[in-house]
Design a binder for these strands. Structure first.
Lengths: 197, 197
DNA sequence: GTCTATATCCAGATAGAC
DNA sequence: GTCTATCTGGATATAGAC
């Protein structure tokens, strides 16, 4: 992926370098164990330059987060355009998440694993973000069309996606040796069977 | 619950005060946003006393964590003694987790939601801890006895417990207004249906 | 065991030349 | 826009009396 895709704002080389480095360090060591000096050293961008591009350390995290939420939202919208039935859409979302976890583990760790509110106190929980809203909509659509059992919509959504999200956690924690797509069919069968009418 | 239950080590009033305060602050503001001074102020125990009882700030977190893992392990072992079939055991585990989330949200937040390795670098991921091992065993037993479809054991375990764990996250994030036990039946039906033979 | 006072360090952030 | 040098606060942790 292009480093541009890390941010929602106009890209410059220095800015991109900082974002790419911060993403790596934030996921490797955690936000609080990463000092701005660490980012300076590993990105090759000076302190002054960093504070020229970002308001403060939190601003780096926010820029990363906003860019990635946007990117994931677009990906899910593309899935909605490409697939017609809610079931196909949900499956495609899980497939996308599994593939992203293998190809861009740092992004997935930062998006799904980090405790954003600890370092971005103003941020809404990620489950209220656009991509998660789209996921819940897919499940609600399926229920409205009668494909699913009549359940509390949130229960249905967690039933469909909860197992997959746990599998991603296990993979990022190094508990699963095989790549996630290996498990896609089984995971999907379980997920859908749990709610199918 | 008794504050004693927060730690695996011999209890003293000061020690317990510190642990109870730390649990609250660590979950409210996060480990890194909590200074030892905060704990001093809110526990009423002095800096010197805290460092007499604990090696360092991380030592407070470790004592908390070890005590809580032990406690949850015992609870699950009690469930294993009390219920005979794997299905009943799994359901009882979810019920226990749901009830704990309502009665002791801080404990559940600290156990299931915190990123332990960020502040306790030597700690194994929580999914390798005893309670999680017991959960996986319940599912494997069910599969061996033919109650479940033949699946990868880890896929089956995440299918059974993944939805419930996501529901706990949603509840701790304030997304669900109703107490978790309200959803227990639906969640359990989905979970078991996803893997039942 | 508990306390107060304090040492030490390093983080985040800024100043101001180029 | 980028850099180096520097300020300042607050954090962890210790010393040593009681």
């Amino acid at each position: 992926m292009s480093v541009n895709a890390l941010s929602a704002s106009p890209a410059t080389p220095a800015r991109d370098q900082v974002l790419a480095t911060a993403l790596r360090l934030f996921t490797e060591k955690g936000y609080f164990n990463t000092s701005v000096q660490d980012v300076v050293r590993e990105s090759g961008v000076s302190t002054g330059s960093i504070y020229h591009h970002f308001k403060d350390k939190e601003g780096i995290a926010k820029a990363l987060y906003d860019g990635l939420v946007l990117r994931m939202g677009s990906a899910f919208e593309a899935i909605v355009s490409q697939y017609r039935t809610p079931g196909d859409r949900c499956r495609a979302v899980i497939e996308y998440l599994f593939e992203m976890t293998e190809s861009e583990p740092e992004i997935m760790a930062f998006m799904l694993y980090a405790k954003h509110r600890e370092f971005m106190p103003e941020e809404a929980p990620i489950c209220s973000s656009r991509p998660f809203e789209l996921m819940r909509n897919m499940v609600s659509d399926a229920m409205d069309s009668g494909e699913l059992l009549p359940l509390d919509p949130l229960v249905a959504a967690t039933a469909v996606f909860g197992g997959a999200l746990r599998m991603i956690n296990l993979r990022l924690d190094g508990i699963l040796d095989k790549p996630l797509p290996t498990y896609l069919d089984e995971v999907w069968q379980c997920a859908w069977r749990s709610v199918a009418a």
